[in-house]
Design a protein around this nucleic acid. Sequence first.
DNA 1: ATTATCTATAGATCTATAGATAATGC
DNA 2: ATTATCTATAGATCTATAGATAATGC
Lengths: 238, 238
Amino acid sequence: MNPPRLSADERRAAILAAAMPLFAVHGFAATTTRQIADSAGVSEALLYRHFPSKEDLYMALHEFCCVHAEVFSRFIDEIKPSTSTLVHSVYYIMNSIFLHKQNHPDDPVNNEHFCRLMINSLLDDGRFARMFIKDQVMPWMDLWAASAKSAEAAGDMNPGIAIENRLWFTHHLAVMLAVNHLPETCVIPYACNAQNLCDEAVLFSLRGMGLTESAIATHYNPSAIQLFTKKIFEALNP
Amino acid sequence: MNPPRLSADERRAAILAAAMPLFAVHGFAATTTRQIADSAGVSEALLYRHFPSKEDLYMALHEFCCVHAEVFSRFIDEIKPSTSTLVHSVYYIMNSIFLHKQNHPDDPVNNEHFCRLMINSLLDDGRFARMFIKDQVMPWMDLWAASAKSAEAAGDMNPGIAIENRLWFTHHLAVMLAVNHLPETCVIPYACNAQNLCDEAVLFSLRGMGLTESAIATHYNPSAIQLFTKKIFEALNP
DNA sequence: ATTATCTATAGATCTATAGATAATGC
DNA sequence: ATTATCTATAGATCTATAGATAATGC
């Protein structure tokens, strides 16, 4: 009859899980403590037992996102930098960020909600975004940059753009494609479906980074890439 | 002594001008009618004389942005589609959206505020973003797409990506660069300053669209482009 | 006479806390 | 005995309106 009585840690996690979609979809100011309490099935008073203020709850949510993203960086060391890795990485970036594919299946952080929290942070002071990028994205960036350097050394890539920027630009395109698809009706009148759009964005990025058409022809093999990303997927999901 | 008594139209515009930075920076929910009234130097009651509700005021602000952007589309017909126009357009997109350069000097809509309103719309239902894109961006897109087709016909561009998407991707990169720079501290640890970043993003986009290295070498002449954009700038500011 | 503008306030809602109660674990 | 949880509510704030007042234009 009565709602289950949880331990402090469990209740804390349950409150965060309930708060996530609310803060993500409505933003900080438009989300009320009453909404969160109702969604979590507890009283507002209990929220304030676990979090000193609404603001603290919001910040705890950001920490929660960072901690639960850590699983992704465990397998970086096993991947060798190369032109092929670069191509596969671009494919992975685009698919995971834009199409929300190939992420950890047990990830408690919904991809759309995470995206919304990030954009909300960018409209705010950017603290959460910086924290996440520093802790979770930079390890990958090191691998990506090493791969780009390797591609350059192999003569597969034209010069003219700082190595890291080539990958940031790819990343930015992926994020913006995701953001444009956040509203129920996509704001951009693209002439194709999301999957084709993603594939074209991969090609755009590979070319944009300066990869030669011949290097792209050699390394951009969709079926091989699917195998590669599937392997990552399985490594993340033992 | 007393504050000046304005006509209904003038007061309405003054209220919108005061509301703009508040809604842009803090978002709809976190902006109070009291803040707007104080910033406009009037009572809250007067706000509700001019706008039935806070929501209506917000929507009026969106209309205001669209109307005041119309000046930009007046000179489209004078520009001929070509590879050169395409290159110049990419440069223009990147500089106007990311670096906030080459816009109309009398534009009452601050570029950063406009960017924030757009992103807020994307986190919401996207209505404002769709309206602006349809009315203000699509006329340009037609010119850009015609230029890209012209470049393709001239043998300057490799195939593989839908024509419009090449320019949307360029646009998205520009927007995301702007968004990453919204917080006081940029969220991405770029290894260069904003001007270099913009130049590199132009090169990335030209390559990404599939322009050949030789076409880029022929048409991407920074000093000639500065002249071109200056001409647009002057046309917009007679 | 009309229009712009204000003061004052109703009614709702929102964050946060005080103090009481019920379930758990030793 | 400790810990989780609730009810009730204070105090602030927020949107919106009622009704009064002062400036403008014919």
